[in-house]
Design a protein around this nucleic acid. Structure first.
Lengths: 236, 236
DNA sequence: ACAAAAGTGTTGTAACTACACCCATGT
DNA sequence: ACATGGGTGTAGTTACAACACTTTTGT
């Protein structure tokens, strides 16, 4: 690849002005009842001390997906299996430091993955209905992430990433209700999940709450089969 | 907004290296039988003389959507009602000129909109099954656009942008079949379209082909209603 | 004992699939 | 006359929505 810049004493010189590129990551978690988002406290200006999405500047030797993954690991020590790109935000005044275009991703992680505060900044979960004031246009990015998540929930096996390997049907249902913001009938919900083939029953759990719950697991084989039939499989 | 660069005699200097940002646009058209894509012949290196998606570099005073729209107008004189952002492409070696990250959009236009060759470069429609060799990673971008279009077809009223205001049911069906790559039963297709409320019948047309066809129009009112009910409306 | 959570089945309705014949037009 | 395209209805099946009672456990 040709070099498209001239290295000077103070930096890098380009013929035309360029926007900077960042990535930001909306990390969803589930506490059994509410959908949560992971935010980091900014340690530097601008917006020092306020909460923001984990993210940062694109390096020259990485793709945007790699950048999102790297920044996420640096700031929260999380390494999700999968991240989904869902939008680009490029308003002229979205960053007071200058012209910054951000590529936004979302990911889903199990809340059992504890956040290691390995750098100075704090990282905390917030229920999505009760977010603190956010830096930049990050509220808008979260709103878009929420729409993308609702869109994708039925067509990609992403919900299961928020739960333990084994989960009860009420847990799964509460998750769907938290994401989609509506209520389902228990019996119909279970019937549909079973009919789609995306979950398989395992065994009864020891009781932790009230009555013992039957446990299920996500069925990746069935999902793979559904993807291979170009006849778009059932939704789940 | 603060200035984040230093103006030099030869250009613009930044503290850290930056990728350039471009937009590229996949324009879909429909000739009554096949799905087509609008390509422009490149007039300059790299890839001079080969076919490429219309697009170009982001300016400092515009958002990516505006950039895509402006470049499209400059290169093809098209001004679609709507463009959809569907992906970001950032492989390190995708552009021989240097590090270039592109934001990809798709749009749908009526083929009756003739292409004005207002700049030197040629612009031509190609059937999607018979594309010429393409510049950069534009083949990959088109493949992703195709997936995004298939995803969106049933949930946004985009198909109708490819047809005249009035269209026959067989026309609409051929369009759906071209996009989704499968065949539908005529009667079931019509029933579903009518039941969704997205189309309304008008009158019989004068015959242009074989038998006169009943004509329909897209029903934006019904679509608006569906969007307002948060109960995700029927698909179409 | 009482409250809260979770297991389980049936029935009516709406949507989807499969399928065949006739008519109008152009050649 | 023939080939092509396009109009139209019905019946079987599958998915979806609505609905109540019983069991277990914790307090």
């Amino acid at each position: 690849m040709k070099e498209d810049y001239k290295k000077t004493d103070d930096g890098y010189e380009y013929k035309y002005p360029r926007a900077a590129i960042t990535t930001d990551c909306v990390i969803f978690g589930f506490d059994g009842r509410y959908l949560n988002i992971l935010l980091v406290e900014r340690g530097i200006e601008p917006f020092k001390g306020s909460w923001a999405l984990p993210g940062g500047f694109l390096k020259m030797d990485e793709r945007v997906e790699e950048c999102a993954f790297r920044e996420l690991k640096e700031e929260t020590s999380l390494e999700p299996e999968q991240i989904e790109q869902f939008g680009v935000f490029s308003s002229l005044d979205r960053d007071p430091r200058g012209r910054v275009v951000t590529v936004a991703f979302y990911a889903l992680v199990k809340r059992t993955h504890v956040i290691g505060g390995d750098d100075a900044n704090d990282a905390r979960w917030f229920p999505i209905e009760d977010l603190p004031p956010l830096a930049f246009d990050h509220k808008e990015i979260i709103d878009e992430a929420m729409l993308a998540l609702k869109r994708d929930l039925h067509h990609q096996p992403i919900g299961f990433m928020l739960l333990d390997e084994q989960f009860s049907m009420p847990e799964l249902q509460r998750l769907y209700e938290a994401i989609l913001g509506r209520h389902f009938d228990r019996r119909n919900f279970q019937k549909k999940m079973m009919a789609s083939g995306i979950v398989t029953p395992t065994v009864y759990s020891e009781s932790t709450g009230h009555r013992p719950s039957k446990l299920f697991t996500f069925n990746p084989l069935e999902y793979k089969k559904m993807k291979e039939e170009n006849t778009n499989g059932k939704e789940f």
